[in-house]
Computed example of a mutant assay.
Amino acid sequence: MAMFSTNFRNYIQSGFTLIEIMIVIAIMGVLIAIASMSYQLHLRKTQVMIIYQEINLFRLPYQTLLNEGAGVTNFSPDGLDMPVTSEYCEFNITAPNTNGTTLNAATCKIQGLSYLQDQSISLDRAADGSWQCRPSAGIPKAYLPKACQ
């Protein structure tokens, strides 16, 4: 009988207590929450970067069409031989202002991203031919590439 009580005592002392298991689960929950938030931020930054890269594709055809002369009037995505829409954008083109900066020379109205509803990213073209990215006010700076901040 003494052998049974010794083995039984050793058996009870081995393993984890309920408190220890609850602490481990709580720590895992905190780590998963932090990882999930970090993943969401990275995903949103990547999506906005894709939008910025897509709208940048309009710069060269726009400049090429502009260099063809004053008779060119087809400043549209079709006129630039570019798509009207993409996964995240509905594009709009504005004809150049010959006297200065062309605001919204190329604009992406963001679509398909619930956290950026009714937002846009535009490229403005200065008279000297330089381009500037201009996001709408509702896009958090944390999501924007450095060129748009």
Rank of each mutant, 00 (worst) to 15 (best):
17 T>D: 11
17 T>W: 04
19 I>S: 13
19 I>P: 12
20 E>C: 04
20 E>G: 06
20 E>Y: 05
21 I>D: 06
24 V>L: 03
25 I>W: 05
25 I>T: 09
25 I>N: 04
25 I>G: 07
26 A>G: 12
28 M>Y: 08
29 G>E: 11
30 V>G: 05
31 L>H: 02
31 L>Q: 03
31 L>K: 02
34 I>H: 05
34 I>K: 02
34 I>S: 07
35 A>Y: 10
35 A>Q: 11
35 A>H: 10
35 A>C: 12
35 A>F: 12
36 S>Q: 07
36 S>Y: 12
37 M>T: 13
39 Y>I: 11
39 Y>F: 11
39 Y>V: 09
39 Y>K: 06
39 Y>R: 04
40 Q>N: 10
41 L>D: 09
42 H>W: 10
42 H>M: 14
43 L>F: 11
44 R>K: 13
44 R>Y: 11
47 Q>C: 09
50 I>N: 06
50 I>E: 10
50 I>R: 09
51 I>S: 04
51 I>H: 03
52 Y>F: 15
54 E>K: 08
54 E>L: 06
55 I>Y: 10
56 N>R: 15
56 N>C: 14
57 L>T: 08
58 F>A: 00
58 F>Y: 01
58 F>R: 00
59 R>P: 01
59 R>Q: 12
60 L>D: 01
60 L>W: 02
61 P>A: 06
62 Y>T: 01
64 T>E: 14
65 L>T: 04
65 L>S: 14
65 L>W: 02
66 L>H: 12
66 L>R: 12
67 N>K: 13
68 E>N: 03
69 G>W: 06
70 A>M: 14
70 A>I: 15
70 A>R: 11
70 A>G: 15
71 G>S: 15
71 G>N: 10
73 T>V: 10
73 T>E: 10
73 T>W: 07
74 N>K: 07
74 N>R: 08
74 N>T: 13
75 F>S: 09
76 S>E: 06
76 S>K: 05
76 S>C: 08
77 P>H: 06
77 P>Y: 01
78 D>Y: 02
78 D>A: 13
79 G>W: 00
81 D>H: 03
82 M>I: 00
82 M>Q: 00
83 P>L: 00
84 V>Q: 11
85 T>E: 06
85 T>C: 02
85 T>G: 03
87 E>M: 10
87 E>I: 09
87 E>D: 14
89 C>W: 01
90 E>F: 14
90 E>V: 15
90 E>H: 15
91 F>V: 01
91 F>R: 00
91 F>T: 01
92 N>D: 14
92 N>V: 12
92 N>Y: 13
93 I>H: 00
93 I>K: 00
94 T>W: 04
94 T>C: 11
95 A>M: 14
95 A>Q: 13
96 P>F: 06
97 N>T: 02
98 T>A: 15
98 T>S: 09
98 T>L: 15
99 N>Y: 13
100 G>F: 15
